[in-house]
Design a protein around this nucleic acid. Structure first.
Length: 122
DNA sequence: GGTTTGACCATAA
DNA sequence: CTTATGGCCAAAC
């Protein structure tokens, strides 16, 4: 019989869910592409998180999404240089190499809130 | 409608 | 530290 497909993470509402997760990150905290992906169920979709956020600019629906709080796993901003200024304005400190201490500023997603946000995004 | 390009991460050598 | 590879796409050209 045909092989059973395991549930995918990147489904039709993927972009919406990425945005919903990013919205949970409060000012003064940061997260990473990998963490967002993990919150959605699979770390390997980190790339797709990037794709979704890149698409965000095209769509112009980034009003509610604090995209600047998303860093790469090294704790460094990706892309726009204004990202650093935005974070510093929220009280996030950068080290000499332009990196953020993720252990200090990294946001921990709570399951309850995550559920709620994801459910609302559907 | 094929080819190109793009906000990434973990792992191995 | 660097380089290479694999991993669930989707929009623009």
């Amino acid at each position: 019989m045909t092989a059973r497909r395991e549930p995918r993470v990147v489904t039709e509402g993927f972009h919406q869910r990425v945005f919903a997760v990013v919205r949970l990150v409060p000012a003064g905290a940061v997260t990473t592409y990998g963490d967002v992906a993990a919150a959605l169920g699979a770390r390997s979709v980190a790339r797709h998180v990037g794709y979704a956020l890149a698409a965000l600019g095209r769509h112009g629906a980034s009003d509610d999404v604090p995209w600047h709080r998303v860093l790469n796993v090294k704790g460094a901003p990706v892309g726009d240089t204004s990202q650093r200024a935005l974070l510093e304005a929220e009280g996030v400190a950068f080290d000499g190499r332009g990196r953020v201490d993720l252990r200090r500023y990294g946001h921990r997603f709570e399951r309850e809130l995550l559920w709620e946000a994801l459910r609302a995004a559907e």
